[in-house]
Computed example of a mutant assay.
Amino acid sequence: MAALEEIKSLTESRTLLFDEHSHAFRWLTASLLAINAGAAVAALNTEFLSAHSKIVSGAFFGVGILVALLIGVLSQQQKRKLLPIVQRQIGYWMTVADDGERSEELEAAIAAEVKSATKWAWTVPATGWVSALIFLAGIMVMGNGLIAQEREALDVKSIQRDR
Rank of each mutant, 00 (worst) to 15 (best):
M1D: 12
L4K: 13
L4A: 12
L4M: 12
K8I: 08
K8P: 02
L16Q: 10
L17Y: 12
F18P: 02
F18N: 14
H21Q: 10
F25C: 09
W27A: 11
L28Y: 01
A30E: 14
A30K: 13
S31V: 13
L32G: 00
N36R: 02
A37V: 01
A39S: 08
V41E: 00
A42H: 04
A42N: 09
L44G: 10
L44Q: 08
E47V: 10
E47S: 12
F48P: 03
F48G: 12
L49H: 04
L49N: 04
S50K: 05
A51Q: 15
K54D: 03
I55N: 08
A59L: 12
F60Q: 01
F61R: 00
G64N: 05
V67S: 00
L70T: 00
L70Q: 01
G72N: 15
V73N: 10
V73Q: 09
S75C: 03
Q76C: 07
Q76E: 11
Q78W: 02
L82E: 07
L83R: 13
I85L: 06
R88C: 05
I90P: 02
G91S: 11
G91W: 03
Y92H: 14
W93G: 01
M94L: 07
V96D: 06
A97Y: 02
D98C: 05
D99V: 08
D99I: 13
E101I: 15
L106Y: 05
A109D: 14
A111Y: 10
A112D: 13
E113L: 06
V114D: 13
T118W: 03
T118H: 07
K119I: 07
A121G: 09
A121T: 07
W122P: 06
V124C: 04
V124Y: 03
P125F: 05
T127H: 01
T127W: 01
V130T: 13
S131Y: 01
S131L: 02
A132L: 14
A137P: 02
A137T: 03
M142N: 13
N144Q: 15
A148Q: 14
A148M: 09
E152G: 15
K157S: 09
S158L: 11
I159A: 14
Q160G: 04
